[in-house]
């Protein structure tokens, strides 16, 4: 009978030491993994915030620098501490040159003058009521941008309440609220609204009138500059926007269309007025 080859087993001490070592290694690996996940989340959040801030600031800067006062249709600028609305010049998109057949669905036309609006979008429930947090502060979805690509004189003539205009596609009259973009018929004249960032919960504007900063601007002209302030945290209740307590992203944008000309010859606009 052949004898079984010798195989020395593990002693209890070796097993305990092995288990202890394994537990220590696994615990270290798990702690390392958790820390890596936390760092990853922080990095993603940082990059998203910085990217959103940069995108919004750059887009808003480009549109503010191209802001125009049109003699017929442009409303100039209307701004408050939390909202800004102005006409700006852009290169029309592909729909401006789209060629379609009579049987195709017509595309929404565009022109080179657009009216854009930036403001905070409050969180609303199914009934349209604002949603409040535990402290009674309204929840904010983020910063939204509305762009009215088809601007007509009738539409922009009334900046409050409602205005009636003709739908260039269907030829039917449409009632449009120029502030909210709500359309009674819900057709092509609805102003598109886009949530440009869900990270930003605070938005604050100030306007340079040539001598000082103001929190409101209204009129046909444009301010010389607009100060844009954004923040990640919502504004606490009972706190003024100027006293926002958290870190902010801040930029002052000069508006060439709103600047007063240098001393010397003054060239009046088409309507005989200074912009």
């Amino acid at each position: 009978m052949r004898r079984r080859p010798f195989h020395r087993g593990f002693t209890l001490l070796e097993v305990l030491l092995g288990l202890t070592l394994a537990v220590v290694v696994v615990a270290g690996a798990f702690a390392f993994y958790r820390r890596a996940l936390e760092v990853r989340e922080l990095v993603i959040q940082d990059v998203e915030v910085a990217g959103a801030e940069r995108a919004i600031m750059d887009h808003l800067t480009a549109e503010l620098r191209a802001a125009q006062v049109d003699a017929f249709v442009s409303p100039g600028m209307q701004g408050t501490a939390s909202q800004i609305k102005f006409g700006t010049v852009v290169v029309p998109g592909p729909p401006a040159w789209a060629v379609v057949n009579a049987t195709d669905t017509p595309v929404t036309p565009e022109r080179d003058l657009q009216v854009v609006t930036y403001e905070l979008r409050p969180t609303v429930d199914d009934q349209g009521n604002p949603v409040l947090d535990d402290q009674g502060n309204p929840l904010i979805d983020g910063i939204e941008r509305m762009c009215q690509t088809l601007v007509s004189a009738v539409t922009v003539a009334s900046t409050t309440g409602t205005a009636s205009t003709l739908n260039p596609i269907t030829g039917t009259p449409t009632t449009v609220n120029p502030t909210t973009g709500a359309s009674a018929t819900g057709d092509a004249t609805v102003i598109p609204s886009t949530l440009v960032s869900a990270r930003m919960k605070f938005l604050y504007f100030r306007y340079w009138d040539g001598t000082q900063w103001t929190e409101a601007w209204s009129g046909r002209g444009l301010p010389a500059a607009v100060e844009v302030i954004m923040g990640v945290d919502p504004l606490p209740s009972n706190v003024l926007p100027a006293d926002y307590p958290y870190a902010v992203f801040h930029r002052v944008v000069f508006l060439p269309g709103g600047a007063k000309p240098p001393s010397g010859t003054i060239v009046l606009g088409l309507d005989g007025e200074l912009p």
Partner: peptide
Amino acid sequence: IRLEAQAAD
């Protein structure tokens, strides 16, 4: 990225 965004502002 954060520094660049802040510097651009």
